[in-house]
Amino acid sequence: MEFKQLVINNSDSIVQKWMEEIDSLKDSNYTATISDELYESTNREFVNVIFTSIRNEGSTKAVEDFSEKIINLGWPLSYITDGLQIFRRVSTEYLLTQSEKVDSNFFTNLSASVNDWVEPLIRELVNEYSGSWEHIVSLQRVALQELSAPLIPVMEGITIMPLIGTIDTERAKLIMENLLEGAIKHNSEVVLIDITGVPVVDTMVAHHIIQAAEAVRLIGATCILVGIRPEIAQTIVNLGIDLSNFPTKSSLKKGFSTALEITGRHVTDLNVKENNIEKMMDSLRGE
């Protein structure tokens, strides 16, 4: 207890030393881009939070507010850990200089007591940081999921699913669900799966795609696999994967014309533009 009182009573000199130490970190460190005034004021706030926490035995409100502010400003976690390590060192050194007789017993007590104040703080601040990171990761996962299996109805009865990036089991499941729901919702006779953007097709990915195609056939639509690049074709054959059960095409363009054939349509040029130009030329000649 007396160590604590000693530190609180002599907070001014400890703070001063702490400020010096952390200032020396500034240039060599991450915070080099932050203005001196901001750095100074944040340091003051930080050290105030530390002392508030020591005085109140872990008052969490001030710590929470401070960490929230620091996280919002985008300061690195190492600033917090460095600051607290420095504080631990500075206060230990200060307490050692204040006492006349130092034996190992005394030192153990002192160190335990300083750790008692500092460790909960470190734990809490690191928790706040990792909590915010986890939150961001979960947000990004949701965003990624929304982007991972898009379905585009391009024409009556024809739907395209462009896939980009690697496919894992979780994503494959999502792809299958979206594909089937979408095919029914848009009443699609033909569904094109475009794998131009899938970097690697191994047995697992192929298996998932085949399953999806089979399921699409069960609900009564046709599945065409498009965008098979030369290297993908080589891998598929080398791995002995049998894709002969459903049509495959090298490009979306070819796949689309197959889809048009299946739905009983074809593309006709209207030649309107050319005719117009000829008419214009004729009228010019006539004048």
Partner: peptide, 10 residues
């Protein structure tokens, strides 16, 4: 055939 049914069958 419903999507869920198709998936189960596969």
């Amino acid at each position: 055939i419903q999507p869920a049914v198709a998936m189960t069958l596969i």
